[in-house]
Amino acid sequence: MIEKLEFENKEIDIQELPKIEDLQFNKVEKKFLLVLLLRIVMFALVFNGIGLFFYFSGKMGFPSEGILYTLLGINILVILRLLMTIMAFKIRAYALRERDISYQRGLITFKQTTVSVNRIQHVELTQSVLMKLFNLSSIKIYTAGGNQSDISIAGIKKEKAEEIKSLLSKKIGQHE
């Protein structure tokens, strides 16, 4: 059904192009897993707190067991989410080459995005409060391809993120 692919290319043999899959991918900081897990745990704590408050105050119009079952369901989902986050974390990685930057993530759907330096519109560093505690940053890379194609590499040490940003900015400058 699917023919074997051979891209013939007069100028350059495609086999000699650097393979994206062989790229040296850098993992994001391990500390960032903690940030991700903390976010979920914090959500769970708030939810459980509210639920238990209503359970013990007994001021609900409906049977209070309902609250417990709901909480149980939510907590099961939270645990699943924690496990998924841990498993998916191993996949998060980025690779910087002379002419492009690649970012991969996703457990159920693996996604590898490659943005060429000559298509980058601008680069931005962001930091949430939690990430600030761990001295981590996100690098957001914007192109004209729209919101969906913009990549945000989260969980890079702040100094390193700044280094990457200035490197990319310099390269963008060369292209203009």
């Binding site: 457990l107 759907t109 693996f110 996604k111 590898q112 490659t114 298509r119 004209a144």
Partner: peptide, 12 residues
């Protein structure tokens, strides 16, 4: 502008 490679576990 940008190229994405995607693979779900079912596709894999």
């Amino acid at each position: 502008q940008v190229v994405d490679f995607r693979q779900s576990i079912f596709q894999k």
